[in-house]
Design a protein around this nucleic acid. Structure first.
Length: 362
DNA sequence: AAGTCGTGGAT
DNA sequence: TATCCAAGACT
């Protein structure tokens, strides 16, 4: 039985100085040494975008937001609809609603400055355990235990933690807190996450390159991929429905705004039936918003977090005078990029109007 | 406290 | 193709 050497921050920080990734919102260790400070607005914005989202997907959105709203005050003053349009395609739309609320709180209740403590940050909309610690550490150099999915994987392997997530989370966070240094806590947090993203990967980790390979209990046990242990997940049910693409004689498409809360809250949609199980053979066309010459355009499938959606798509050319009053609004088909359309809706529209978007994603 | 909330890339 | 899962928050 060998004695476990304790994982320490110093070797990781030395690794980070050599291997950190250059990201648009990040101040490199070299720049930091020259006294360059990160912009808390940039750190906060990137951290919210990065929640459950890949770095690759975030980059373009981060550039768009910073270009359109250079300061938190600009974002606070922006129309909510503009923010939703800019966020469209990134997913988890409650983040965009909370982003706007948080910007308003900072601009109008905190004098335009973000709180610098974990507690103060966590009191703001859309900022939870992870983001409050990350912003406190990275933007304000506070000693805060930052734990995301990457850190969970690194810690579970360093200590060969057999207890399944999410139950083992508190114990893991205690390990992170014990490791976090008073000097460079922000770099330590980013180093742990970079390590998880590039070395301590879910599959085939590059242990030979890892600064912790002399102290990692999972590596010593010869099966690091076994960690982290996670609770079993349940299967996704299928929901069915029909979507109706109504185009008027001037090339306008009938759209609706979804309720503010819940799935795709505050986003734009085409009229659909309820999304629920449907008896085989029924088309759904009987539930159209109004009578018209509805033509079937096939089916689109979209997978959400906890269910799979299959929408039968129907198209009709209509005269606006014939359909009477409708719930919704008419938008030119040539300007759908100006609408807050989630991906599922773009798929349905593209099935009926192949030329609506340059790509299915828009 | 378990369920709700998107999307796209990697394997 | 199926599965995982990525810098989680909210209820």
């Amino acid at each position: 039985m060998t004695i476990q050497k304790k994982p320490a921050a110093e070797p990781l920080l030395a690794w980070y100085d050599r291997h950190h990734r250059d990201l648009p919102w990040r101040i490199s260790p070299a720049m930091a040494k020259r006294g360059v400070k990160p912009d808390p607005y940039h750190i906060w914005l990137s951290e919210v975008m990065l929640q459950q989202t890949t770095v690759a997907a975030v980059k373009a959105y981060f550039a768009k937001f910073v270009g359109q709203w250079p300061t938190v005050a600009d974002l606070a003053a922006a129309p909510s609809e503009d923010v939703m349009v800019a966020w469209a395609g990134l997913g988890y739309y409650a983040r965009a609603r909370n982003l706007k609320k948080c910007a308003e709180a900072v601009a109008f209740e905190h004098g335009g400055r973000f709180p610098e403590t974990e507690e103060g940050l966590k009191s703001l909309p859309g900022i939870g355990d992870y983001t409050s610690a990350a912003v406190a550490a990275i933007a304000f150099n506070r000693n805060a235990a930052v734990m995301d999915g990457n850190v969970e994987r690194v810690i579970s392997r360093l200590y060969a933690i057999d207890a399944p997530l999410p139950g083992s989370k508190p114990a893991m966070k205690a390990r992170v807190a014990a490791m976090t240094p008073d000097d460079r806590p922000g770099d330590f947090a980013q180093a742990m996450m970079d390590l998880g993203a590039t070395i301590c990967t879910p599959k085939r980790p590059a242990c030979a390159l890892c600064p912790f390979n002399d102290v990692c209990m999972a590596l010593e046990s010869d099966d690091p991929e076994r960690f982290p242990v996670k609770a079993a997940k349940k299967e996704k049910p299928v929901r069915l429905g029909a979507a109706f693409i109504a185009v008027d004689t001037d090339g306008h498409l009938l759209l609706r705004r979804r309720p503010e809360s819940g799935l795709l809250g505050g986003m734009t949609e085409v009229p659909t039936t309820a999304w629920t199980s449907r008896v085989d053979g029924e088309t759904g066309v009987e539930a159209a918003p109004f009578a018209a010459g509805w033509q079937a355009c096939g089916t689109v499938t979209h997978v959400f977090t906890h269910f799979e959606l299959r929408l039968g798509v129907y198209r009709a050319q209509v005269s606006r005078g014939d359909v009477g009053a409708v719930h919704g609004f008419w938008a030119p088909v040539t300007n759908l990029d100006g609408e807050a359309l989630p991906t599922a809706m773009k798929k349905a529209i593209a099935a009926a109007i192949p030329t609506a978007f340059s790509t299915p994603k828009g």
